[in-house]
Amino acid sequence: MEIVATISPYLDMVREELMSRTSFGFAPDRDLPPAPARRADSGSGPRVLFVGFPSDYSLAFLLGLLQLEVRVCGIVTSPGAHPAILGDNALSRIADHLGVPLLRTWRINDDHSRIDMAGLRPEAAVMASFNQIVNAPTLRIPRHGFMNVHPSLLPQYRGPEPVYWVIADGAERTGITLHRAVPKVDAGPILAQATVAVDPHDTSGTLTRRLVGAGVPLLRPALEALLADAPGTVPDLRAGSYLPPVGHRRLDEAPSAAAAERMVRAGVPNM
Score class of each variant (00 low, 15 high):
residue 189 P to T: 02
residue 16 E to W: 03
residue 20 S to D: 14
residue 235 P to I: 13
residue 56 D to Y: 15
residue 160 P to R: 04
residue 178 L to C: 08
residue 271 M to P: 01
residue 167 I to F: 04
residue 95 A to W: 05
residue 209 R to M: 12
residue 15 R to W: 15
residue 81 A to N: 09
residue 147 M to Y: 12
residue 240 G to M: 01
residue 139 L to R: 07
residue 191 L to W: 09
residue 164 Y to S: 03
residue 47 R to H: 07
residue 255 P to H: 14
residue 172 E to K: 10
residue 235 P to C: 05
residue 182 V to T: 15
residue 38 R to F: 07
residue 253 E to A: 15
residue 230 A to R: 14
residue 108 I to F: 11
residue 82 H to M: 00
residue 212 V to C: 11
residue 267 G to P: 01
residue 84 A to N: 04
residue 135 N to Y: 01
residue 215 G to M: 01
residue 19 M to C: 06
residue 149 V to T: 05
residue 73 C to S: 09
residue 217 P to E: 05
residue 229 D to V: 05
residue 24 F to E: 00
residue 73 C to M: 01
residue 198 V to S: 11
residue 149 V to Q: 00
residue 215 G to H: 05
residue 252 D to L: 11
residue 172 E to W: 04
residue 67 Q to N: 09
residue 131 N to R: 15
residue 40 A to R: 04
residue 33 P to F: 13
residue 246 V to T: 15
residue 255 P to Q: 08
residue 248 H to T: 14
residue 9 P to F: 06
residue 135 N to S: 02
residue 139 L to V: 12
residue 67 Q to A: 07
residue 69 E to Q: 11
residue 83 P to L: 03
residue 183 P to M: 01
residue 1 M to Y: 02
residue 13 M to V: 11
residue 163 V to G: 03
residue 181 A to H: 02
residue 113 S to A: 15
residue 45 G to E: 06
residue 79 P to L: 04
residue 18 L to A: 09
residue 100 V to M: 10
residue 174 T to N: 07
residue 109 N to T: 10
residue 185 V to W: 15
residue 5 A to N: 08
residue 144 H to A: 02
residue 209 R to Y: 08
residue 265 R to L: 13
residue 30 R to T: 04
residue 81 A to W: 08
residue 63 L to R: 07
residue 271 M to D: 09
residue 218 L to V: 10
residue 57 Y to E: 00
residue 234 V to G: 00
residue 218 L to A: 03
residue 91 L to M: 13
residue 101 P to W: 13
residue 1 M to N: 10
residue 91 L to I: 05
residue 20 S to G: 14
residue 82 H to C: 00
residue 169 D to Y: 09
residue 181 A to V: 12
residue 136 A to T: 01
residue 57 Y to D: 00
residue 150 H to I: 01
residue 122 P to M: 08
residue 103 L to R: 01
residue 192 A to Y: 13
residue 226 L to I: 05
residue 169 D to L: 01
residue 75 I to L: 13
residue 251 L to T: 01
residue 64 G to L: 03
residue 186 D to N: 09
residue 263 M to H: 13
residue 201 H to Y: 03
residue 235 P to R: 14
residue 32 L to D: 11
residue 185 V to P: 00
residue 66 L to A: 04
residue 118 A to V: 00
residue 154 L to N: 04
residue 254 A to K: 07
residue 53 F to T: 06
residue 249 R to Q: 13
residue 110 D to A: 10
residue 71 R to G: 00
residue 207 L to R: 05
residue 160 P to K: 10
residue 121 R to S: 15
residue 248 H to R: 13
residue 255 P to Y: 07
residue 137 P to A: 13
residue 167 I to W: 11
residue 147 M to C: 12
residue 175 G to C: 10
residue 247 G to N: 06
residue 102 L to F: 06
